[in-house]
Each structure stands twice: as structure tokens, then as C-alpha cells.
């Protein structure tokens, strides 16, 4: 196992799920309850020093349980290495803790995940839709059960449905 995943496993034995190394990239899966603690450890530990947030996104697996997967990408400027943290979020309780307390840049990225996938972030300072309009109520566009052509007014067009 990669030394970083070993460190995470030793520090959070109850949260660690698995570690995969593929195509020169390290990705560590953790339980969603401990995401903030793991991220804070990655950010604060001087040996790891993942000081830069690269990206937050999510993937929808409608046939799997738990349904959603959160994906965090971090980068360490000093050590020049990347890590990917993954956490599964179930559909019934579609929430995860926000990491805006650690990286301020997570604010907009988490808002986008909420907007597109409908995952709610606890303790987020300003959780609103960001790309879609604020009164958009047709659902969450990047979920797999959302049609590519969209939903809404156009569903009533007769020449499209016939």
C-alpha cells in the first residue's frame, strides 16, 4: 500500500475503506462521516501538506448502493503530488460535511455539486444553486435519471412527444 494511504489508515482505522493506485494516481476511499477529519489531516500534517484544493466533483451510480460518490482532488505544492479522496453518499440521506472550513475555494465547487447532483453540504456558508437559476425546480441535471434534452416546458410540446 502507498505510504500516504497507510498513514490515513493508521490515523483513521474506522473511516478507511480502500486505497487504489492506478495510472500513477492515488485514490483513497473513506467513510463520509470522517471526510472533514481526513481532509484536515491531509491539509495540516507537515509531512503530507496537501495545501491546494484542485477540484470537487461527484458521480452518480443509480444502480449501486450508496448511490453517489464524492470525489476530492488535492495537490501539494511543496511535495508536488496529488491525491484523490472518495466518499460514498446514500440517496436517502444525501448529505455530507462541507470542507469550506479548510479550503475556502471549496465554497463554489460544493455549490456546483449541490446544483448539479443535489448533494447537500452541512455547515456550508452559502449553499445555493450556482449555474442553474435559483428558482430552477426540475431536478438535478447531472443525475443519470435526468434526460439529456432537459425537462420542463418543452415536455408539453406536442410535436416532440408524438
Amino acid at each position: 500500500m502507498h505510504p500516504i494511504s497507510q498513514q490515513i489508515q493508521e490515523r483513521f482505522p474506522e473511516a478507511f475503506v480502500e486505497s487504489i493506485e492506478a495510472l500513477g494516481e492515488l485514490s483513497v476511499s473513506v467513510k463520509r462521516e470522517k471526510v472533514v477529519d481526513v481532509c484536515r489531516f491531509l491539509h495540516d500534517d507537515p509531512g503530507l501538506a496537501f495545501d491546494m484544493i484542485t477540484d470537487i466533483c461527484s458521480v452518480d451510480f443509480p444502480n449501486e448502493e450508496p448511490r453517489f460518490e464524492m470525489i476530492y482532488q488535492f495537490y501539494s505544492i511543496h511535495k508536488n503530488r496529488r491525491i484523490r479522496i472518495k466518499a460514498r453518499v446514500p440517496e436517502e440521506d444525501c448529505t455530507i460535511d462541507s470542507i469550506t472550513g479548510i479550503w475556502k475555494g471549496a465554497n463554489f465547487m460544493e455549490r456546483e455539486v449541490y446544483d448539479m447532483m443535489g448533494i447537500v453540504f452541512n455547515n456550508h456558508p452559502d449553499l445555493r444553486r450556482i449555474l442553474m437559476t435559483e428558482d430552477y425546480d426540475e431536478g438535478f441535471p447531472l443525475r443519470k435519471d435526468f434526460p439529456v434534452e432537459g425537462r420542463g416546458w418543452r415536455d408539453t410540446f406536442e410535436f416532440l412527444s408524438s
Binding site: I53, T54, G105
Partner: peptide, 8 residues
């Protein structure tokens, strides 16, 4: 520090 923290 802020620039790194924001992911710029």
C-alpha cells in the same frame, strides 16, 4: 497562502 487555499 490565500491563493493556494482558494485553488487559484
Amino acid at each position: 497562502e490565500d491563493a493556494i487555499n482558494f485553488g487559484l
